[in-house]
């Protein structure tokens, strides 16, 4: 990958808004998160939480305001930003001919994980999410809840100083939501910054160091 600047997990979004033609997707909103923090974005459907996460992740250019990661403009084309941000925003495209554990080994290897322990790390992550027994399944053989856990595993299997999650609790039962909460807590304890949209009040109460209310445009 070449030399890449390691960015600290300081997330700053100042008055970022998004308007396409006459339609406002996101009113100007501020978000600030530091390493070790978990900031929860709260708001009704259509208020622009996903848009805000996409702007913070550098996938979308804001119409107003600025978004930065570790002091650099949030732009996915910047290798340093890509190296810093792990995001689960919608469904990632998976390889139809790789099993779950193969996917995690592939991601681990491309981020320079030690090959000798790659299998162990991958299986441990699947185990933590309660889907280790599905390690040799292909992605199309999973239920919708299992698929969500697998997507979370894909996101958490790569190193990142900033983790962006769009409703990580969706399609999960209460017990599995607690598992995900534990995983997020581990990441923040290790120094990562987590920004996530969430509709679960219990999860928000147990994880959020700060809550940002996203106001709908209309």
């Amino acid at each position: 990958m070449g030399a890449v600047v390691v960015l600290a997990g300081e997330v700053r979004a100042e008055a970022v808004g998004k308007t396409i033609d006459e339609t406002t997707l996101l009113l100007p909103t501020d978000v600030s998160a530091d390493p070790g923090e978990c900031v929860v974005l709260r708001g009704p459907n259509g208020s622009g939480k996903t848009t805000l996460l996409r702007i913070i992740g550098g996938l979308l250019v804001p119409s107003t305001g600025t978004a930065t990661i570790g002091g650099r403009e949030a732009d996915e084309r910047d290798r340093a930003v890509r190296a810093a941000v792990a995001a689960l925003l919608g469904a990632p495209t998976t390889y139809r001919d790789l099993t779950l554990v193969d996917h995690l080994v592939l991601i681990d290897s491309t981020w320079g994980g030690d090959p000798a322990t790659s299998d162990d790390r991958s299986l441990a992550l699947l185990d933590q999410l309660g889907i280790a027994h599905l390690d040799d399944r292909f992605p199309h053989e999973l239920s919708s809840g299992q698929e969500q856990l697998f997507r979370l595993a894909l996101t958490f299997s790569r190193p990142a100083s900033v983790v962006l999650l769009d409703e990580p609790e969706q399609r999960l039962d209460t017990a599995k939501r607690q598992v995900v909460a534990e995983l997020i807590r581990e990441r923040t304890t290790a120094g990562a910054t987590v920004v996530m949209a969430c509709h679960d009040p219990e999860l928000t109460a147990s994880l959020a160091t700060r809550v940002v209310d996203v106001v709908p445009a209309r």
Binding site: L98, V105, L106, F138, H140
Partner: peptide, 21 residues
Amino acid sequence: TRPVRHGRSARLRPGRPFGVL
């Protein structure tokens, strides 16, 4: 395409990024 259903016992061997791809 048909969904892949066999050969699941084979494992992707970890290694350097280019080789593993």
